[in-house]
Simulated assay, not measured.
Amino acid sequence: MDVLMIDDEPDFVEQAKMFLEKEEERLDIDTALTGEEGWSKLEENAYDGIISDYKMRGMDGLELLKKVREERDTDIPFILFTGKGREEVAMKALNFGVDRYLQKKGDPKSQYGVLADAITQEIEHWHSKKEMRRSEKKYRELSEKSLVGTYIIQNDVFKYVNPEFCKIFGYDEDELIDEKYLKLVSPEDKELVKEGVENRQSGNGEEKRYTFQGLHKTGRKIDIEVFSVPSTYQGETAVVGTLIDITERKRAKEKFRSLFENIPIMAFVLDEEGRLKEFNEAFRQKIGYSREELIGKHLTDLPNILSEEDREKTLERFKKIINGECKDWTEIMEIHELDDPPTCPKCGSGKIGMVE
């Protein structure tokens, strides 16, 4: 930890340097005897912290502090270590952004121990803040270009939303920052979302994926799928999440479900092993078994579907479909042993099926 110590008493500076480096081996103390010399060294070198006396010839400690904060625009740790303990000096120092105000008094070994602890703690905290800012900057840069909505909730309000999030809900960023997150949730789902956010905001919840109905700025409802995790933001617990608008996907799924259920021919869905996952009413009625009896059955085990001689042929066709060698879903199987076999609306043959 490179520290610049500024004091116009040469003997004191040398003594302080020796004690501080002995007290904390991570400290490497550079020295300056005037505020002007200190400023010049700050211009030329990089330091992790500054310790300065208040009363010095020329530029005093307060002037140096103000110059550092305003002209260098840095929050580098700055400790005012002085024998002049007037209250007005302390107030000015705090207003200019000093990190600590310590007085030169008491046993030298004891006071240098306090000073070493103080500057070490301030430097560690400063580096932690810088690392956090770098991480947040990187996260923001990635999030700004993301194709999914990204947000941070802290103390029940939005602290960050990316452009895609704003697009999904129809708001500008400044309309959402520091606003309650529940304004974007439909009344019927407020308790669901609130419970999840509170659990993760407390730091006790786990990552979770769920869906809810959100509210667009126009008032229309939108279906949202969200993934959120407990995290931290600027040193405090927060909820970080991503979300997407699944309104159109949900409508398409419902439309497909309606078509699947009401199509007048037998339709079914198989898993990759050829076992029945779903089927429509026409299929159930033709087979004559209940849903419980059919779900999980292998295609070749279904009664009234395949003749014995076609089982091997059907299995071969199914393998081709799974391997991507057969693109036409109508080639899954041929219907046999039916008085009036249904025909596929696509090709007019007696081939029918569906693979998921």
Score class of each variant (00 low, 15 high):
223 D>H: 08
220 R>W: 07
222 I>V: 15
215 L>H: 08
212 F>H: 04
203 G>W: 03
206 E>K: 15
220 R>M: 06
203 G>Y: 04
233 Y>P: 05
223 D>E: 08
216 H>T: 09
219 G>C: 12
228 S>G: 06
212 F>K: 00
233 Y>A: 08
225 E>I: 13
233 Y>V: 07
205 G>I: 02
208 K>M: 07
233 Y>H: 14
225 E>V: 15
218 T>W: 13
227 F>Q: 02
233 Y>L: 10
232 T>Y: 04
224 I>T: 02
233 Y>Q: 09
226 V>C: 15
215 L>K: 14
215 L>Q: 12
221 K>D: 05
210 Y>K: 05
206 E>S: 15
220 R>C: 06
222 I>D: 00
209 R>M: 13
222 I>M: 06
228 S>I: 05
224 I>E: 00
212 F>N: 02
210 Y>E: 10
215 L>A: 11
224 I>L: 09
227 F>Y: 09
220 R>L: 07
230 P>K: 07
231 S>N: 09
228 S>H: 07
213 Q>T: 13
223 D>N: 10
204 N>G: 07
204 N>D: 15
206 E>R: 15
223 D>V: 05
215 L>N: 11
211 T>Q: 13
202 S>D: 09
231 S>P: 00
222 I>F: 03
233 Y>T: 07
228 S>T: 11
209 R>V: 15
208 K>A: 03
223 D>P: 00
205 G>Y: 02
230 P>R: 03
232 T>M: 05
215 L>Y: 08
209 R>Y: 06
217 K>P: 01
203 G>M: 07
211 T>W: 12
217 K>G: 03
227 F>E: 00
230 P>N: 10
220 R>A: 06
206 E>V: 07
215 L>W: 12
215 L>M: 14
229 V>C: 03
200 R>S: 01
204 N>W: 11
225 E>K: 11
232 T>R: 07
230 P>C: 09
209 R>I: 13
224 I>S: 01
215 L>R: 14
217 K>L: 06
217 K>W: 01
209 R>L: 12
206 E>I: 04
212 F>S: 04
202 S>V: 11
208 K>L: 10
221 K>R: 11
206 E>P: 01
224 I>N: 00
214 G>L: 02
213 Q>W: 12
231 S>C: 05
212 F>M: 12
204 N>S: 15
225 E>T: 11
214 G>K: 01
222 I>C: 02
225 E>H: 10
213 Q>F: 09
222 I>Y: 01
229 V>P: 00
212 F>A: 05
215 L>V: 14
216 H>M: 11
225 E>C: 12
224 I>C: 03
232 T>H: 02
210 Y>C: 06
230 P>E: 10
202 S>M: 10
216 H>D: 09
203 G>Q: 04
207 E>C: 05
211 T>K: 12
218 T>Y: 13
212 F>Q: 01
229 V>I: 15
202 S>A: 11
233 Y>G: 08
231 S>W: 05
229 V>Y: 00
231 S>I: 00
232 T>K: 06
232 T>I: 13
221 K>V: 13
233 Y>R: 11
221 K>L: 09
